[in-house]
């Protein structure tokens, strides 16, 4: 099973590297929106920590919706037929989850670099914030992968994924915003312990639901 998952992952990454346009288009999307934010806060600049953190996560949300939705849409229907015969549903969804997770880590750390460069470096405990980015990409990919699989089956899907995705992802996003506000002051385990536990609990629920429900979805 692990071999099969890795073979799908390897194929995805090879396609991504040879084409390259998806990753770079997402990066360009991030850069241009950050620039829009930067210019709209001129001339006084953005000093408020809360605004910084909120805009950062909202941008991550939009970027991840555009990138995760591609993970199913970019497959042709012929290739999906092929997958249907060769791989089981569990293998496919796990590889998609891992792929989206890796993609979102790259995207969010890039966003962090661009944000600190243009909008001011306000995060004090950087190691904590980076580990939060990893946890955040993990949660967002868990949440959006099944939603993108659902909207893949619907005709006008680019709109559907945002309608379905936004309300579902909101609890996770709220927790992430709240934790990251702490990281701009200083790291303190006591302040964030409950939130981290809740986030891990939500991830466990999301992962198990994704695994169970995708097999039903894949069967048609």
């Amino acid at each position: 099973m692990i071999n099969k998952i890795f073979s799908i992952l390897e194929k995805e990454i090879k396609i991504e590297l040879s084409q390259g346009h998806l990753f770079f288009s997402v990066l360009l999307y991030i850069v241009s929106s950050t620039y829009v934010i930067y210019l709209s806060f001129q001339p006084s600049g953005l000093f408020d920590m809360e605004t910084w953190v909120s805009i950062f996560w909202v941008l991550i949300l939009y970027g991840s919706i555009t990138s995760v939705s591609k993970s199913f849409f970019q497959e042709s229907s012929k290739r999906n037929f092929y997958y249907y015969y060769v791989y089981s549903a569990d293998e496919l969804i796990l590889s998609k989850l891992i792929y989206n997770f890796l993609f979102l880590i790259c995207m969010s750390s890039f966003t962090f670099i661009i944000f600190s460069f243009l909008l001011g470096d306000i995060i004090i405990s950087k190691t904590f914030f980076l580990s939060l980015l990893i946890l955040g990409s993990f949660s967002i990919s868990n949440c959006l992968t099944l939603i993108s699989a659902i909207s893949y089956q619907v005709e006008n899907n680019s709109l559907i994924i945002s309608i379905l995705g936004f309300p579902v992802i909101l609890p996770i996003l709220l927790i992430l915003i709240r934790i990251s506000k702490i990281s701009s002051i200083d790291f303190s385990w006591n302040l964030i312990r409950d939130d981290i536990y809740l986030l891990i609990l939500l991830n466990v629920i999301l992962l198990s639901l994704t695994k169970v429900l995708f097999s039903y979805l894949w069967r048609n």
Binding site: I147, I150, E155, I163, I205, L206, L209, Y216, L217
Partner: peptide
Amino acid sequence: LRSSIDDESKRGKISSVYNVFSFSM
């Protein structure tokens, strides 16, 4: 989501999956 799918069994399956998923959130 329900109104955007025409086929009955497909509509039921997809919207049910979303229903269970979103209720848990």
